[in-house]
Every structure is written in structure tokens, then in C-alpha cells.
Design a protein around this nucleic acid. Structure first.
Lengths: 234, 234
DNA sequence: CCAAAAGTGTTAGGCTTACACCCATGC
DNA sequence: GCATGGGTGTAAGCCTAACACTTTTGG
């Protein structure tokens, strides 16, 4: 009998990463983009990516790409979608499994970023990207919006200590709309997942705003009891 | 400079299809499974699948697999998830992009099914499947549940004319729980997407139940006006 | 006339939304 | 003392969930 495995076509398989970051100072959701370092499309803006190797899993490849770019392991990462059109990459037939990652921009080593010629670009001012990368970004952003509504992943984008104002601004930056302050606070506080610290953030106001921190263990506990996170608020 | 494309590893890439069907008579959600026709795992239960060829897109490959198995084109199909662990397939390193499809089991040619040694199996009595196919099925089923809550795709699984009782039973079969009859009817009727026919289904009751049909054009119209489908009901 | 399935409304409570003023402090 | 941003409560309305009886008709 024929060996279906050995007679079948093989393909280049890549991973591309939509890396989201957030800047509490200019209050914008950002993407980590690179200038492509090889042909075709040398020097053009692109998502960070790489080919999947023989001896690594697809998610392993995504982690490697992230690690090589940022020096960070253990980031929040999720598979987004797989793009497999024949001519999506002008350099050859490449199937790409895209992922999105959330990183706290403050953990990031600026030297590393510089070395990779990577740059943060605001989600609302994305430059022209190669291939189908703009479509990939749009889809990942829609998925991020759905995700932060129902899973406490927004904290991955913030420093460990943050104010409620900062948390709300993060959600506004992702949703790309404003949120009612009182409704937002009521909802997040009522979930009982935050610890209010005694310390205040005093850079942005005279009165100062209390810092909070997210308690992952409490979320895990509540989840086991059937609780659902929800920050879908007007 | 090195050509990153030509020096990179290539992989076998497959598609696997989780094909959902529904039987209005035994009121169960079913999966179309096949007995594998080559080694390894010859003769074992498996999802229908196939390798992606050089000259076809990933979604094209999924359509081909579906068409070869069922003779049907233009089915509802959606990409589910990509599985890329190194040893997930014992026959070799294969990355698979899974899809789920919804088919109206009555359109299906039984001869075709027979020829492919395919069989419908109830979702609640899935046999042991090869590789990671059980995990694939679970994820696809969860995605189907989320999808039919917010998109009118359930009608793909029913004949063109159906009763409200049948529609509710379909939702119950997918959700794997009961739904309150009055709440369900109120909600689906209030969406104004169904046309009530004059004709009655009289096989299952003496009184008979009115047939309805789904009006896709009305859904498209409402969607454009910002309406959201929702059948997440208790 | 009776068994079997179809069909129908109402109410209570919870959740979402909308909305405006006081507080604390540095300058 | 005033400008700036932080922080707080309530009421209306909508949506969801719970719940039981009547209708129709073939046999």
C-alpha cells in the first residue's frame, strides 16, 4: 500500500505574533512591529514571525519568536487563526499560524527591542504591513476585545500595581470607546478580584489614586466555583 | 544572503473536519466519523481528513475533504484550531488545521457515506478516536455551542421547514441541557427571523405543529442595522 | 373521551445603563 | 482658593428566569 505520509506535499509553516502592549502614559494599545530583515519585502513593516522547525511544536515556535524578540518567556499567548491561502506570502507558499501575546511593556528591555529593530506602534496608527498582516492584526484585535471581556487578561498589560483609572483607560484603549466610570468601577470592584493597596499613585493628580493589584489565586478559586469574569460594560 | 525560505524545514500539513449533523428523529447531535483506511491506526475511528496539497489553500483542502466524503459543496464551515505538537500523529510529524462543518443529514447520499465507510455517531457516545481527535472534537463542540448562541447557524442542521419544537430540540442537543419552552419561543419569535408557514407537521402529534422557515435575507438586513442574534436562553 | 404533544403570558428580581456632584491636594 | 483629577450612589427600565394550564385532534 502507498504510504500516505511520504507521498504527500510538504509546506513551509510559520508563526506570526501579534504582540500587544499598553502604555499607561499615552493610554494607547500598541503593537510590536519589526522591519523585515530579508527578502522579499526587505525593510518593510511586518509582524514578528519565523518558520516552524522540525523539532519544535507550533506553540513552541511562537514562544521562541517571542523570546528572541523580547527576552521574555512566560508571556500570555493564545493561538489566533491560521492563514493558508496559496499566494498570501510573495516569497513562497507559507502557511502561518498566528498568535497574539500580551506583554507588559515595562518588563521589556529597550536594548533588545532596538537590536531587533522592533518598534511599538499605536493600534490606531498601524503602518502599511506586508502580505496579509493587516488582516491578521484586525482579527487578533477583535479576539483580544472578546477575550478581555470575559477573562482577566488585561492585567498582563499593566504593571503589578495599577489604579482603577489606569485599568479603565486600558479597557477603553482596547475597546476603542469610552466607558462610564461609575459602572466600570462598580463592576470590577464587585468581582472581588482586586486588592486595594494603601499606597497612592501621585504623579497624575494632586489627590492621588489608590493602587490596586490583581489576585490571580482568587480568580482561580472563584472559577472553580462557577464564577464568570465579565467586564463588558458601557 | 541566505534565502530563509529555501533553508527552512517543511512539514506535512493536514486538515481534519469535525462534521456535525443532527437527526430530528432521535434528537441527537451527531458526528460523521470514518474508519481509517491506511496505516498507522488502520481501521480505527478517526475524523475525516487529508493532507493539504501544494496547489490548494488550507480551506480549499477542507472543502475537498468534505466534498469527497459527502458529495456536498457549499456547506457551512469554519476553522476551529490548529494542532502542532511534534508527536501528535504517530505516523509522522503532521500539523493539522481543524475545521467544523454543519450539515443537514437529509441532504446526504447514504451511498456516498457507505462508500467512505463513514458513520454517524452521537456526540454523547463517541468511540475512542485516534491521536488527539477526541480533544479536537471537544474543542469544536465548545465552539459550536458558542457559535449557535450568537449566529443563526443552527438552521444549517435542519431541513428547510422545521417546527419550533424541532428547533428547540436541536438547541438542547447541542447545549446538552434542557431549555424552557416558553422562553425559547419568545426569544426566537421576537427576533423576527422566521416565517410561519400554513403547513403543519403531523407525524409526531395529533394536533400538529406549524412549520417555520428561516429567512437569511432578513438576518443579513438586520445585521446591517446593528442587530445581534442571540439564543442564549434558559 | 382521553392521551399526547403544541401552544401560550405574567411576574419578580437582577442587571445594565444613565447620570452629577463632592473630595483631596498641590500650587 | 482654585484647578485638577479621584471617587462615589441611585433610580428607571429592560431582560431573564421561573412557572402551569389550555388547545387540538386522532384513535
Amino acid at each position: 500500500m502507498t504510504d500516505h505520509y511520504s507521498v504527500s506535499d510538504k509546506h513551509l509553516v510559520a508563526v506570526d505574533c501579534v504582540i500587544f502592549g499598553y502604555d499607561i502614559y499615552d493610554k494607547e494599545l500598541k503593537l510590536l512591529l519589526i522591519k523585515r530583515k530579508f527578502e522579499p519585502e526587505f525593510g518593510k513593516w511586518s509582524l514578528p514571525g519565523g518558520f516552524v522547525k522540525k523539532d519544535e511544536s507550533v506553540s513552541g515556535a511562537a514562544c521562541r519568536v517571542l523570546y528572541q524578540l523580547t527576552g521574555l518567556a512566560e508571556l500570555y499567548m493564545e493561538q489566533s487563526y491560521t492563514y493558508g491561502d496559496i499566494n498570501r506570502d510573495t516569497g513562497g507558499r507559507v502557511i502561518t499560524i498566528t498568535h497574539f501575546a500580551l506583554i507588559n511593556a515595562y518588563q521589556l528591555d529597550p536594548v533588545m527591542i532596538e537590536a531587533s529593530s522592533a518598534h511599538w506602534r499605536s493600534i490606531s496608527r498601524i503602518p502599511k504591513l506586508i502580505f496579509d498582516h493587516e488582516k491578521i492584526v484586525k482579527k487578533a484585535h477583535r479576539q483580544l476585545i472578546e477575550r478581555i471581556k470575559v477573562k482577566p487578561v488585561g492585567f498582563e498589560l499593566l504593571p503589578e500595581k495599577f489604579t482603577l483609572v489606569q485599568l479603565q483607560q486600558l479597557y477603553e484603549a482596547i475597546y476603542l470607546r469610552t466607558i462610564d466610570k461609575r459602572n466600570f468601577r462598580k463592576k470590577i470592584i464587585s468581582m472581588n478580584l482586586l486588592e486595594k493597596l494603601d499606597e497612592k499613585e501621585k504623579e497624575t493628580s494632586k489627590k492621588g489614586a489608590f493602587y490596586y493589584k490583581f489576585i490571580p489565586a482568587r480568580y482561580d478559586d472563584f472559577r472553580r466555583k462557577g464564577f464568570y469574569f465579565n467586564l463588558d460594560v458601557q
